[in-house]
Structures are given as C-alpha cells and as structure tokens.
Write a protein that binds this DNA or RNA. Structure first.
Lengths: 151, 151
DNA sequence: TGAAAATAAATTGTGCACAATATAATCGCG
DNA sequence: CGCGATTATATTGTGCACAATTTATTTTCA
C-alpha cells in the first residue's frame, strides 16, 4: 500500500524510481560514452562529430544555422567550432553579406575525416543492442518530446 | 535514389539527419531546460534534485550507492554533493565501518525541501506534452538502451 | 601475517550546456 | 534619414560528465 488512500488525485511525494526523464538523461550520457572510444581515433568528441556531419553535407553554414539544427546556443557552439578550427577541420570567416554572421566552412582535412569515420555508424549500431524498430520508435518519441518541450 | 545501388550492404556516408541518437541527446537537454525554471525557486539543479530525491527515500547512502543508481562517477558526484552540503541539505561523514567510504545523509533542511518540491512533477508532466503511454514507452526504450550500452 | 590487488573517494583537466551579458551590425519605421 | 529594436556572435561564470590519476583503506591469499 503506497499512498493515495481515498481521494484519487493526491500529489504523491516524488520518488526517484518513478522518474521518467532520468533514464532518458542516463541513456543520452551512455550514447556519448559509447561513441567516445570510436571517435578517439579521430580526435573528435561526439558534438564535434555531429557538427562535422552537418558540414559534410552542407559545406558551409552560419553559426546560427548550426545552432538551430542542433538546438544549442552560441555559448556552446562558439568554443566548439573554435576547437574544430584549431584542428584545421573548419574555417571561420565573416559573412561579407552580413558582417554580424560567421560562415563556418569545412576544409579538405575536415572532408577527409568523412572517410575515416565511415565505419562508425555501423560499429555503434552493433553496440546499441536494441532492434531497429525500437530505435525508430525511440527516435520519434524523442522528437515528439522535443517538439513539446521547446514549444 | 540515395545510394546503395546494387550491393545491399554498402556503408552509407553518415548523415546528420539520419542520426538516431541525436534526438535523444537533444531531448535530454530539453528536459533539463524544462526543469530549470521550476527548480530555480529551490536553488537546485536537475541533478541536485535527483540526488535529493534518492535521499528523501533512503535518508543515508554511500557516495558509491548514489553513483550506481545514477550511473555517474565520483568525479561528478563528489563536487555535486559538496554543493548540497554547502547549502546545508546533506551531511558527509566517513563510514565508521569502512573508512574509505562517505555516508551522505539528508538533513532536516534537505527533508523540508521535499514539501517545497511537491508540485514539480505535476507541473513538469503538463509541459511534457506527450501521452502517458508514450512516456512509459520512452522510459522503457531508454532503459533497454541503457542496459545494452552499459553491458 | 603481510604484501599485492581491489575498492572508495577525491582531484585535475577538458569539453559541453546554458544563463546573463556584451558588442556589433542590420532592420524597421516614423 | 536616423534611431530604437532586433539579430548574430562572443564572453563570462557555474555546473555537469568523465578520463586519468592519487590517496587511503580494506580484502585476498600465498
């Protein structure tokens, strides 16, 4: 017998075990941990890898565009992109059409990493250990949650 | 037509839009963002709130026990618990039975926060914006992913 | 028993995440 | 045109996440 004796909508004292969001938090940490050894060979973090992945397709984007796609702010991305620049993987130049903006462009060295990273998605898929259907479902639930929370 | 022309198992060049794990990562960030304004009144972070929630039930635990439940390490928890101690919400004493260990115990002030936090789960549930069934499913998918990745 | 192995915390250093703020350029509109 | 509002990026400060290492204690077992 737990509580909620008669009324039906008592505010239960919050309990850690009942938390729905903490497994989400832990799972996100676990994913980053799982990527780490794979990305170590490329001297990249998970976030840096994500930014490069965007630039492998787009070649060049403003900081703002990257922020929007990744749902991160400039306080996170500015130093991250500077680290990519320090490794010679991207360039950061002002947009001549709008001097406020920065154009982040992938370099040849940055593009070359695409080949070196080709095996990573497959290797991670093996470690994920849940079925493809479950993965798709997880993805769409997260997307729905995101849309609701950021609204 | 994307690629994978004839063979059936070509390694596709990884694309950001296809990433399954990034929505998970973003959703976890969004959850922490959603909690922030609710916890601000209590001067707590999301993680501090989670630690307190464990101690509201258990009264006293070793750092190691908290690490295990939260899947975090002492490098994360030691400073966090020290901040809770600085706020007078927990005490940190050596375990007389094992001088290596620290016993983290909730104080009266820490227990008192339980009442102040009583409304938070309900308020967050409103903001979550996806159905209870979806939330349960998300939770169990994250738990499965966690178990697979940490194995 | 006593030395090697294992364990629990703590420390150090790097990299996110984000609030708050600052700076600078552009836009909108009277 | 000009000036207030908006926008893009950068900076500062706090807190998490974790690898790598250190210190202290306990366990193990030859």
């Amino acid at each position: 017998m737990k509580a909620d004796v008669a009324s039906g909508s008592v505010e239960l004292a919050p309990s850690f075990e009942d938390q729905v969001c903490f497994p989400l938090y832990s799972a996100a940490n676990a994913v980053v941990r799982a990527y780490r050894p794979l990305l170590q060979a490329l001297d990249l973090t998970y976030l840096q890898y994500m930014v490069l992945m965007i630039l492998w397709d787009e070649r060049q984007l403003k900081v703002k565009d990257i922020c929007d796609r990744m749902r991160l702010d400039s306080g996170t991305l500015t130093p991250l992109v500077k680290r990519l620049e320090a490794k010679g993987l991207v360039t950061r130049r002002r947009d001549p059409e709008d001097e406020r903006a920065r154009l982040i462009a992938i370099t040849d060295a940055g593009m070359a990493l695409r080949e070196a990273a080709r095996e990573i998605p497959g290797e991670l898929a093996c470690r994920i250990g849940i079925g493809k259907g479950d993965v798709a479902q997880l993805r769409s639930l997260c997307a729905a949650l995101l849309e609701a929370l950021d609204a």
